[in-house]
Design a binder for these strands. Structure first.
Length: 488
RNA sequence: CGCGGGGUGGAGCAGCCUGGUAGCUCGCGAGGCUCAUAACCUCGAGGUCCCCGGUUCAAAUCCGGGCCCCGCACCCA
């Protein structure tokens, strides 16, 4: 679920950028190497290759289903697209003197098949296997991260690299103050074989960092004959990651880029974790929520809306079926869906056309102008939940107007209804990055002339479209259909 | 003294940085409306803002101390 939230957050943001007329490249990917993959494959009686191919299938079909509008999907096991960049980067880091081979000595538990720290031991024994770990030495390549401590401190302090939310930046800075450790960059092939071989050193396999982090630039073909540097050098780079891998993205990765002579990213957006009914999701507790299940029951947009609306960027959030159903019912169904329905029904029944001269200035018109302003402001600061709230505020406002003016038997009913339709048109546009399919359905029902094309990548919400009455060739509304039906 | 997050009406949260009538969603109670997906609108009940001390004219908000919960293995993502 956390995984899904990350993709949805990124997708919402990307869609907003595209709708603003920006050129965007949206890359996602999977890290497919490592000993865990080897082990899992063994357990399931398949080769690592078969396992990762199966996993990628699962991911891509899930992303497609969720409407994640990525441009590039990078697989770290792709020898054609990913490996060349990684190998070239490794050599650059090595030639710059940042990679050194050292002997690592640690306490190895053969049960866990990994090194344990002293702190993990209970009475000198591995808590899981109740046996004493043995002291094992192995050769590792190390990345001399310590050398870049000052560079990184500056980078974060003057926000050349901005971390959102800023509290995480403090966290990373305090890590820096306490002193960095050099990072292990490889494993002997004898212990991990499923990975990218270290260039010019046959006995070693790359550890995750040089391999996986590099996906950001391997997706652009860096260090190959088909480099697309403009997407990095002249672009604003935003990484969207989980807080658990903060230090690697905020410290190790910028250092690697600097060493290779590539500019560092502008922003890192760190999201929190999702709990389930207040507890960490775990198999043993049986409270794991499968996003597919949610989508099957409520639809993609309901999930996208819930995550955007309920979980402020950067915070941890909670998923509970009860809350989900409440939000779906009340916000999407009763407030938004019902507003659409009541307005369109009145339009159709009264055989009313959209007024070519939208009355203004009115309270409604002023409200919407203000909401658009707040809306984009919140997007700029990655406050996605606040942004979506702006659209919902208009919904509430319309529902109030409808009631207080008893529009259904008001003498200026036609005018009011035109205003509501226009408001709904704006609401749909605002919701477009969040719940694209539903926003399009709304627009189609409203009869907005651009509705058909609004899911295209080059669709832009122009100034005119954002203006009150700015959609001039719009005359009729269509038939209302229930957007968010009740779900048991 | 490992690090971090948190403790606000029944539930989930915002507010804290930049002190000054405690706000939102859901639920609950009463009333209204009837165009609409029994939806919508209005009003209301309900809170020692974890505890103790300090600063201040004034503290949920700042400072000090204490208590409690949750992450930082793996699984899951």
């Amino acid at each position: 679920m956390g995984h899904v939230m990350e993709k949805i957050m990124a997708d919402v943001y990307v869609r907003w950028l595209r709708l603003g007329g920006h050129q965007v490249r949206f890359q996602v990917g999977t890290d497919e190497h490592g000993s865990k993959m080897e082990q899992t494959a063994k357990k399931e009686g398949m080769t690592p290759r078969e396992l990762v191919d199966r996993n990628v299938q699962t991911f891509t079909s899930l992303y497609d289903r969720l409407g994640i509008s990525y441009d590039v999907f990078i697989r770290t096991t792709d020898k054609k697209t990913h490996w060349p960049t990684v190998n070239a980067l490794w050599r650059k880091l090595r030639d710059a003197g940042m990679l050194q081979k050292r002997t690592y000595t640690g306490l190895y538990c053969s049960g866990c098949e990994r090194f344990l720290t002293k702190k993990e031991l209970v009475d000198g024994l591995c808590p899981d296997h109740l046996r004493a770990p043995e002291e094992v030495s192995e050769e590792n390549w190390f990345y001399a991260l310590k050398k870049d401590a000052d560079f990184l401190t500056d980078l974060l302090k003057n926000e050349t690299l901005q971390i959102i939310p800023s509290s995480r930046s403090h966290e990373v800075l305090s890590l820096l103050e306490r002193g960095l450790e050099d990072a292990s960059f490889s494993r002997p092939t004898s212990s991990v074989a499923w990975g990218i071989p270290v260039p010019d050193d046959e006995g070693q396999t790359m550890y995750v960092w040089c391999d996986a982090l590099t996906n950001y630039i391997s997706g652009l073909g860096y260090f190959t004959d088909h480099e697309q540097k403009e997407w990095w050098e002249s672009a604003t780079i935003t990484h969207v990651i989980g807080k658990d891998i903060a230090r690697f993205h905020a410290l190790l990765w910028p250092s690697m880029l600097k060493t290779a002579g590539i500019k560092t990213p502008e922003q890192i957006l760190m999201h929190g974790f999702i709990t389930s009914d207040g507890q960490k999701m775990s198999k043993s507790l049986g409270n794991v929520v499968n996003p597919v299940e949610v989508v099957e029951k409520y639809g993609v947009d309901a999930l996208r809306f819930f995550l955007s609306h309920e979980i402020p960027v950067g915070n941890d959030g909670d998923f509970s079926w009860k809350r989900f159903s409440e939000i779906y019912q009340s916000k999407l169904g009763n407030q938004l869906g019902n507003l659409m329905n009541r307005v369109l029904t009145l339009m159709i029944k009264g055989n009313i056309e959209i007024s070519p001269d939208m009355p203004h200035p009115t309270d409604m018109d002023k409200t919407i102008t203000a909401k658009w302003k707040h809306y984009s402001g919140f997007f700029d600061s990655f406050s996605l939940s606040e942004a979506v709230q702006q659209a919902m505020d208009i919904v509430t406002f319309c529902n109030q107007m409808m009631q207080t003016h008893e529009v259904w038997n008001h003498e200026r009913k036609n005018e009011f209804l035109s205003e509501f339709c226009e408001s709904l048109r704006h609401i749909a546009l605002m919701l477009l990055p969040f719940i694209p399919d539903s926003a399009q359905k709304m627009s189609k029902q409203l009869g907005a002339p651009y509705a058909e094309s609004m899911l295209n990548r080059d669709f832009v919400i122009t100034k005119e479209l954002q203006t009150w009455g700015g959609c001039t060739d719009w005359t009729h509304v269509g038939t209302p259909e229930i957007l968010f039906p009740k779900v048991d």
